Amino acid sequence: MDTQSLPAELRTALDRFSGYLERERAVSAHTCRAYLGDLAALFAFAAGEGAAGLQDLELGTLRRWLGAQSQSGASRATLARRAATVRAFTAWAVREEYLESDPALRLRAPKRERSLPGVLQAGQLQRLFQDLEESAAGGDPVAVRNRAMVELLYATGVRVGELAGLDADDLDFDRRTLRVIGKGNKERTVPFGVPAAVAVDDWLRRGRPQLVKDGSGPALFLGVRGGRVDQRQVRSVVHGLFEAMGDTSASGPHALRHSTATHLLDGGADLRAVQEILGHSSLATTQIYTHVSVDRLRKSYQQAHPRA
Rank of each mutant, 00 (worst) to 15 (best):
P218A: 12
T90S: 05
T177E: 02
G19L: 14
P253Q: 02
D214A: 15
L241C: 04
R114S: 03
R25C: 12
T61F: 01
P306A: 11
L120R: 09
A91P: 04
A137P: 07
H291A: 07
G50D: 07
P7T: 05
P103R: 03
R205V: 08
L125Q: 10
E22S: 08
V144A: 10
H305A: 14
G240N: 00
L265Y: 13
L62E: 00
A109E: 02
A164D: 09
V234S: 03
A136K: 01
R175L: 13
G19M: 11
D169G: 09
A68E: 05
L211G: 10
L132P: 04
G193D: 07
R188Q: 06
G215M: 14
D170N: 08
T90N: 04
F43M: 09
A51I: 07
R257L: 01
M1Q: 14
L297C: 13
S72P: 04
G226D: 14
L36S: 12
D247L: 07
P195H: 03
R296W: 15
G123M: 09
T78W: 02
D38C: 11
V274A: 11
K213M: 15
A77V: 05
T61N: 04
L271K: 11
R298A: 15
V198D: 05
Q124R: 11
D169V: 07
L222G: 06
S70V: 02
S293Q: 12
P191I: 14
I181M: 13
R76I: 02
K299C: 12
T189R: 11
Q303C: 13
V237M: 13
A196T: 03
T262Q: 03
G215D: 15
A136P: 03
S5N: 12
G182R: 01
G138H: 09
R175V: 06
Y35G: 10
S249C: 09
D15T: 12
D102C: 07
I288N: 03
L14K: 07
G161E: 01
R82T: 03
E113Y: 01
A255G: 06
V198C: 01
V160L: 07
L132F: 04
R82K: 14
D38A: 10
P7K: 05
G123F: 08
Y35I: 05
E49G: 08
A148Q: 08
A148W: 08
G226I: 15
A197D: 05
P209E: 01
E134F: 04
A93V: 08
R188M: 05
A51D: 09
F45G: 02
S101G: 08
Q231R: 13
A83R: 02
A34P: 01
R76V: 03
W65V: 03
L171K: 02
A80F: 03
L153V: 07
D247W: 04
L59R: 09
A29L: 14
H258R: 09
E9L: 10
T262M: 04
E49Y: 05
L211D: 15
G60E: 11
E58Y: 04
A244F: 00
R63W: 00
V292I: 11
